[in-house]
């Protein structure tokens, strides 16, 4: 059976081809038990395929994958008993109530009729769906559906949870609710593999991020290390164009990067060199010290686009995707501002 010392999820050299498309080209992945791993990549990178391999839905062409110590091909049934899956779409039955959705899943998990009902009630209450429990799912909002879909994967409290783009297409509040739930599960010891197109999401939730592109991992590490390796963008907008030169000197000194001066916009921009992090208060102090009056100071954390630019020199955006690419670019990292 599963043993706690070995990683909860292991993939080694996994390849999977669909006709002419090679969705996975030797993906390696290790997720220690009790941690959250963020699989980060653009549309078409192979994230869903990786999750489907791990959830025993597709067999890899080559390579090995183990979940909770069980091989996904040879011991698929044991893997299935250890996992919960919330896929890219809200996989809930719209024609019945939320409560019935969970009860039916509980019965399929062989909890017994009574225990299945109790478990459904527990989950609905805990995740704020008690009031909507007896409404048909087709009357739910998008956020509620996603939440129901998420808790549908928790019916057995599985030790390993797969979440495929759990917040794509959600409004900020629903996104926050999903994030809170994932954090709560992780705190309880559940191993979570979540895929996302948002660096911010992986940053908030994951202990480790694996950046995937074209079916292989191109970078792995804790979010901070990854971000530090990329650098962030610092920009200062001035009231007085006469101070542009002085500002450029300060920024270059602080970041080690080459300052770009935009005279028309009265803005100085610089990308920090990897390893240097610039904190907003320190920046404001330095500018003050140089007598610069800034109208706007911003430190922008790297976005997924920056990650890809930095890791691949800009040629790495997925070619297999069909949509939603603008989305990832739109959700830039946290922006700090001071006036």
């Amino acid at each position: 059976m599963s043993d706690t010392t070995r990683p909860a999820i292991e993939m080694a050299g996994v390849r999977k081809r669909f006709g002419a498309t090679e969705a996975l080209r030797g993906l390696d992945l290790t997720v220690p038990a009790g941690t959250v791993c963020g699989l980060l990549g653009p549309n078409g990178a192979g994230k869903t395929t990786a999750v489907r391999v791990l959830a025993t839905l597709v067999a890899p062409d080559s390579g090995t994958a183990r979940v909770a110590g069980h091989d996904v091909v040879r011991a698929a049934e044991d893997v299935r008993r250890a996992i919960g899956l919330a896929g890219q779409h809200a996989a809930v039955d719209e024609g019945i109530t939320g409560r019935d959705n969970l009860r039916l899943l509980g019965r399929l998990h062989r909890l017994g009729t009574r225990r299945a009902r109790e478990r459904a009630d527990e989950l609905l209450a805990r995740f704020g769906l008690a009031e909507a429990a007896d409404r048909l799912v087709r009357t739910y909002s998008g956020g509620m559906r996603r939440r129901l879909d998420l808790i549908a994967s928790l019916v057995t409290s599985p030790p390993v949870l797969f979440l495929d783009e759990p917040t794509t297409g959600l409004d900020p509040r629903s996104r926050q609710e999903i994030w809170d739930t994932v954090k709560e599960l992780a705190d309880g010891g559940t191993t979570v593999l979540l895929t996302t197109q948002y660096l911010e999401e992986a940053d908030r939730l994951a202990d480790d991020i694996v950046v995937v592109d074209h079916g292989a991992a191109i970078a792995t590490g804790p979010p901070d290390r990854l971000k530090a390796a990329i650098g962030s963008q610092v920009s200062v907008t001035l009231a007085d164009a006469g101070q542009l030169a002085a500002t450029a000197v300060v920024l270059s000194a602080m970041t080690g990067g080459d300052a770009q001066v935009d005279i028309a916009e009265r803005t100085v921009t610089v990308l920090t060199v990897p390893g240097v992090s610039v904190l907003l208060p320190a920046l404001v102090r330095e500018l003050d010290g140089a007598g610069v009056v800034a109208r706007d100071v911003a430190v922008r954390a790297p976005s997924l686009d920056d990650v890809f630019l930095s890791l691949t020199g800009g040629s790495a955006r997925g070619d297999g995707g069909d949509s939603e690419q603008g989305d990832a670019a739109g959700s830039a990292g946290a922006v700090g501002r001071a006036a």
């Binding site: 008993r81 250890a82 998990h109 062989r110 909890l111 017994g112 057995t156 409290s157 599960l185 559940t190």
Partner: peptide
């Protein structure tokens, strides 16, 4: 949350 597998 406890990660007890409830399945029989």
């Amino acid at each position: 949350m406890a990660t007890v597998v409830l399945a029989a």
